[in-house]
Design a protein around this nucleic acid. Structure first.
Lengths: 248, 248
DNA sequence: AACCAGCGTTCTGATATATGGAACACCGCG
DNA sequence: CGCGGTGTTCCATATATCAGAACGCTGGTT
């Protein structure tokens, strides 16, 4: 598998570069940043613009184009997990007033597919489309516990030399607990002060994603953790039922 | 401007083809549909997959990839109009229980940038990222009335030989009325039974978009149209104020 | 005012690269 | 088993891409 279209990948690199940096970029700067000649960058941009993937202002500075918006939301539309989860997220977020979101493994990475934010002034606000690490998140633990093979080599990829290297036995004990009680938790391990509870969504016996709620740890401390976990698990069960057509 | 990257445009065509058709596509079918040889399509797909713009199942069928989701939402994030309008849309949609959305001219087309849906069982549900025609929509009239030059040739593009050719005088009278009263309306002209009211958002004296509400015509008939129009205009004014930093 | 430095864009020949037909391995079906 | 289909790989040919220089322009400095 060495036959690739180098030009296409360069064009995509341009796209991602424009995406990662907020401000509009000029041809010369792009060329320097990506180590490509000006003329090449310009030609790529011309073609990207013809299709609406980038736009340019009158000064010749470029930024991502709206065609990307339609393409990106199209991806969401064809995710049955999102369609099944949306109303559940909405009702749960409204009742608990905290952020709920749905995460699944896509292209080898744990990806936030959808979210409904809570109402608090201080609230978790993950970005849809962003990815989360495996080893320090509730969803990551869920996948490690129920479908470690699905993670493939991704598990090792972000396995940094573990600043707080947990003993293997300890880790395996936590995963066993996750399987037994039906949810995973992450109390400030990833982001300081952030508490996350995640429950697995199964379809045809396979793990297809997770329903998750996140809130400041201080707020979770004022609630009954078990009752919140029960909510998340019930929500996941409803999503599962909807995916299998058992519930409207 | 004839120097373009043909390979890149072919790759983008593949992307849009996968986007337009819901089901996963095989290499051979794609080649037939786009009139490209199998080997070329395959090479393009390999590169698109390496960057996550497409994904493939184990049978070698391809579909759009999640990387597109991140790119698309990135476009939304850098739209100041969306940032300014979001909270306004939310509060208005909640109070009136009808769908509110924001539309602006992007890449020569009127594009739905964001929306908050109403609560009715029957409700307007435009797709974010989709485009609307110029001549038969409330937003189109707004642009024709306040910034016809911005539409460029787009105006003629979708100007079908006008099945119900309105007299030029009539048309101009309506645009003048739109300018005078501060909002545009569309009562079933585009989609049968759909009523739309749209108010302009100005920044630095230029039209930068529109705040819009849409509902079944029967429901508008039960309300005071003027009061709904006032709401929409007030909302647009708030968005304008937020964009200019005059309001939090 | 003239200048310089930077920009985006265009042009060019040398060459690296995409092309597409043919061959491959595999699968489901009759 | 053979057939028609798939996705994938190979390779010589020709083409589209590359890189650098030149163009016209704008904005700031001398």
């Amino acid at each position: 598998m060495e036959h690739r279209a180098a030009t296409v990948e360069k064009a995509i690199d341009v796209l991602f570069h424009l995406h990662d940096r907020p401000e509009p970029w000029g041809v010369s700067d792009l060329g320097r940043a990506l180590d490509l000649p000006k003329s090449s960058v310009h030609r790529l941009l011309v073609s990207l613009r013809r299709r609406g993937l980038v736009e340019s202002d009158e000064r010749g500075r470029y930024r991502p184009g709206i065609a990307l918006l339609a393409l990106g939301l199209g991806v969401l539309d064809r995710e049955p997990l999102v369609a099944a989860a949306r109303p559940v997220l909405e009702s749960e977020a409204a009742e608990l007033a905290e952020t709920f979101f749905v995460v699944a493994l896509r292209a080898g990475k744990l990806t936030v597919l959808d979210k409904v934010e809570g109402t608090g002034f201080l609230r978790a606000a993950p970005r849809v489309g962003s990815t989360v690490p495996v080893h320090v998140t509730a969803v990551g633990k869920l996948y490690l516990a129920h479908a470690p093979s699905a993670l493939g080599s991704a598990a090792e990829v972000d396995a940094e030399p573990a600043a707080e290297a947990v003993a293997d036995g300890e880790r395996e004990r936590e995963l066993a607990l996750t399987r037994k009680r039906g949810y995973a938790e992450n109390l400030g391990e990833w982001i300081d002060g952030l508490a996350v509870l995640a429950a697995p969504v199964f379809a045809h016996g396979k793990l297809v994603g997770a329903i998750t709620t996140a809130m400041p740890m201080t707020r979770l401390a004022h609630m009954e953790k078990k009752s919140v976990a029960d909510r998340v698990m019930a929500a996941a069960a409803r999503v599962c039922a909807r995916m299998e057509g058992r519930e409207l």
